[in-house]
Design a protein around this nucleic acid. Sequence first.
DNA 1: TTTTAATTAATAACGATTATGAATTAGGAG
DNA 2: CTCCTAATTCATAATCGTTATTAATTAAAA
Lengths: 141, 141
Amino acid sequence: MLTLKQIITMLHQKGHKVTPQRLAICEILFSYKSHPTADEIYKRVSQKFPTISLSTIYQTLNLLMKLGLIQELGFPNISSRYDANTSPHIHIICPKCGNTQDYEDKKFEELWSKFITKLNFKPIGQRLEIYKYCDKCSKIG
Amino acid sequence: MLTLKQIITMLHQKGHKVTPQRLAICEILFSYKSHPTADEIYKRVSQKFPTISLSTIYQTLNLLMKLGLIQELGFPNISSRYDANTSPHIHIICPKCGNTQDYEDKKFEELWSKFITKLNFKPIGQRLEIYKYCDKCSKIG
DNA sequence: TTTTAATTAATAACGATTATGAATTAGGAG
DNA sequence: CTCCTAATTCATAATCGTTATTAATTAAAA
């Protein structure tokens, strides 16, 4: 996963401005191993920047995606989540609330990577997902 | 993939009515190896039932999902697609238009199935997806 | 044939995300 | 350091896929 310094360099290189808002958003995405929604990022950045707009969060997320630094995990009906780890790995996801956690299996990741390289094209992303109601959601029903 | 007869039996068993609208929707889902959107289904069923409502399409899709007969493939910003093949297989998807095609690799499917059975829980679904702009969308940019 | 709960269909409502546009600001030029 | 300008931010409106609501209709059991 990238460091903030690397991200700043990358933004400068591609001619994008490095704003405090962008840094705050990146800090959340790249410092924690979570998969936050836009709104979760918004709430956390708001603590530092009380006037930040949700709009800015989405614009920054879209920029980071265009640069290939993060991946969007979209689901039906519920908010997308954003993952700063773009290398292949398995997610275990609750289809009701979207709670997403990594499932580490180095062997399988390696196998999948090999499979990807054998394709006759270069994919721009991939998803390996297993669905399972989380404890909270399976209690509610 | 299930036949219409099997679906009818299943609906009766679970106490659901077998309506001409539901049959028409199932016919589209289970007779072709496509992954249509709700609107695509709506347009096709409308030819037979000009007064059908998009609402009915969604209600039927949700029923079929609850029965575990189809899987929803949801994406950010674009319409979900519905797949009547619920056994594990790889999709190649255009992230722009959502065009989805199957990628058959029996060996990998077997490997994944084995992996699933080794988990200490029974998943309610899974997705194996590779993203790649389709010819149309990569031309537009 | 009658009855009744399930289903349909039309429309309103919802919610996540994008679009718009005026005000602000990062960062280069002088 | 100051000025300039295009990029960015922020507030709000708009969009669009999907769900909720409800009156009218219908499948299917009695």
